[in-house]
Simulated scan of single mutants.
Amino acid sequence: MKRLFYLFTSVAITVGFASCSLDDDGANFYYAPLEIVNAQVPDTFEYGKVYTINVDLLRPDDCTMSDTFDVRRSATDSTNIRTVSAIGIVLEKDECEEVSEEIRDSFQFEVIYNDPYIFRFYSGDNENGDPEFIEVEVPVK
């Protein structure tokens, strides 16, 4: 009787695992840069403080959502130049409705240098496919 119980149990477990498909159809979204149309930065920074930088982004359709910011220090220029890109998640759906609306998001920025900061906010590509930026300089007191 015990053998019969173990046989039925092992068959049930095998059928249970075999009926579950672990195949993944792939990701149903991808990341894309969003155009920044405006940024609200303070007139001056104070060394050692953390600031909230508000950014207005262009949401092109209802399949696109704001996710995060990529704030990079310029490796070739200066330690105080920051290039800011807004990263969006785009859902892969059959139909996306165009909305062309501005949404607001923000990120935290810590002032770790005494020299003025130059922010380069990515605002899209021009007709030649070259990136364009909104540049803002903020002195540190």
Rank of each mutant, 00 (worst) to 15 (best):
R3L: 14
L4T: 15
Y6S: 09
Y6L: 12
Y6G: 03
Y6D: 07
T9C: 11
V11E: 14
A12N: 10
A12R: 11
A12G: 12
A12H: 09
I13F: 11
I13E: 08
F17T: 04
A18V: 03
S19A: 14
C20A: 14
S21A: 09
L22R: 11
D24F: 08
D25F: 13
G26H: 06
A27Y: 14
F29M: 06
F29S: 04
Y30C: 08
Y31R: 06
Y31F: 15
Y31L: 15
P33C: 00
P33S: 01
P33R: 02
P33F: 02
E35R: 03
I36M: 03
V37P: 01
N38S: 15
A39H: 03
Q40R: 14
Q40P: 04
V41G: 03
P42H: 12
T44S: 04
T44W: 06
E46P: 02
E46W: 05
V50H: 01
T52I: 05
T52S: 10
V55P: 00
L57V: 01
L57Y: 01
L58I: 08
R59G: 10
D61V: 12
D61R: 12
T64Q: 05
T64I: 03
S66C: 08
T68E: 15
T68K: 11
F69K: 02
F69G: 01
V71Q: 02
R72S: 13
R73T: 15
A75Q: 09
T76E: 05
T76F: 04
D77N: 13
N80T: 15
R82W: 10
I87L: 04
G88V: 03
G88M: 04
I89D: 03
I89P: 01
I89L: 05
L91S: 15
E92F: 08
E92G: 12
K93Y: 12
D94V: 10
C96I: 11
C96F: 14
E97I: 04
S100I: 02
E101K: 03
E101M: 07
I103P: 02
D105E: 06
Q108N: 11
Q108G: 07
F109L: 00
E110Q: 13
E110L: 09
V111D: 03
V111L: 04
I112Y: 09
Y113T: 14
N114T: 14
P116W: 00
F121S: 00
F121C: 02
F121L: 01
G124N: 07
D125A: 11
E127K: 01
E127N: 11
G129Y: 05
E132Q: 13
F133L: 14
I134K: 08
I134R: 10
E135G: 06
E135F: 10
E135Y: 09
V136R: 12
E137F: 09
P139A: 06
V140Q: 02
V140W: 00
V140E: 04
K141P: 14
K141Q: 13
